[in-house]
Write a protein that binds this DNA or RNA. Structure first.
Lengths: 156, 156
DNA sequence: ATCAGTCACTTTCATTATGCAAGTAACTAA
DNA sequence: TTAGTTACTTGCATAATGAAAGTGACTGAT
């Protein structure tokens, strides 16, 4: 009666959720990517109980999203900084933010992504990097299995 | 000792997670957006216990992401189809898929988003719709508070 | 008419996870 | 000496998750 693990599923979405799918994890990551590094700052910013924060930070460190660094020896003090993997998570939070603003902010968004040069509010959409084509286009489909005739490793 | 609710937080990410942040919810949504509509098909595809599926479907319907429709009167049979809000969730799953492929698919991706016209594998990135600029650019920042001069409910 | 089969669930109950309150440890500064 | 800061851990109650089994409303074949 353990919680079902998504880690062994072939789907990359399931594997992602194995790392960040627990209650609080994404919000901790959100703050970490905003610049929060200290235990007490996470705690104050999130209103999370210290035991929960401790557990989640451990899990995020174990999953390779955060790195625990000692920034003081006497007294021993630690900080949590996003790894490259953790920083790569930003797009997920950006689309989640856009979705929340569109559907769950009846009085208009209270949080926005802004171009600090022009002051304009950005509207995040997902496109294909090469072609620039929006992935909302129905020509884009999710397919299962590797590209035919291409042995796994050195391939695209 | 209830689970902390994110629904009353101002952050749109938190509000989003209130709806889809539970174990299984996003995977159910993933299948629903792939075309799965029937209870037993969700169950078989996910390997989820029927009681959990029942709870999650109820929650997703209550959150406005799925619509429960009777497709047969005798016997009474139901199907679950994504609402507009549910369909708008696709970009989140696309970025989550891309992140999973980048970091948790050591032998290369087993699931890809493909342009069915060219057969090319898409590489999802998030850009600003108007300017086309990648939101990974550091000029984009998350800011709190509404745009100046637009009072909606008195809060600044 | 009986029986197997399908579909969409619900009920029961054990195991996990979550969360509040409180406590601990190692310091620094007054 | 006392208070304050930082970074946690422990204890324990409540809530969520999950496997197994059961229910209800049918259809279709013998």
């Amino acid at each position: 009666m353990q919680r079902t693990s998504f880690g062994s599923m072939a789907c990359p979405i399931a594997r992602s959720l194995e790392r960040v799918g627990e209650w609080w994890s994404m919000l901790i990551l959100r703050d970490a990517l905003r610049g929060t590094t200290r235990f007490d700052d996470f705690q104050a910013g999130l209103g999370i109980a210290p035991n929960m924060l401790s557990r989640r930070l451990k899990a995020l460190v174990a999953a390779g999203l955060l790195e625990k660094r000692r920034y003081s020896d006497r007294p021993p003090r630690y900080e949590y900084v996003p790894t490259e993997c953790g920083r790569d998570f930003r797009p997920v939070l950006q689309t989640l933010l856009a979705w929340g603003n569109r559907h769950f902010a009846p009085d208009g968004p209270r949080v926005r992504i802004v171009d600090t040069e022009t002051g304009e509010t950005a509207e995040p959409i997902v496109v294909d990097r090469r072609t620039g084509r929006p992935l909302s286009d129905p020509v884009f489909r999710t397919v299962y299995g590797r590209p035919a005739g291409q042995p796994q490793d050195g391939t695209a």
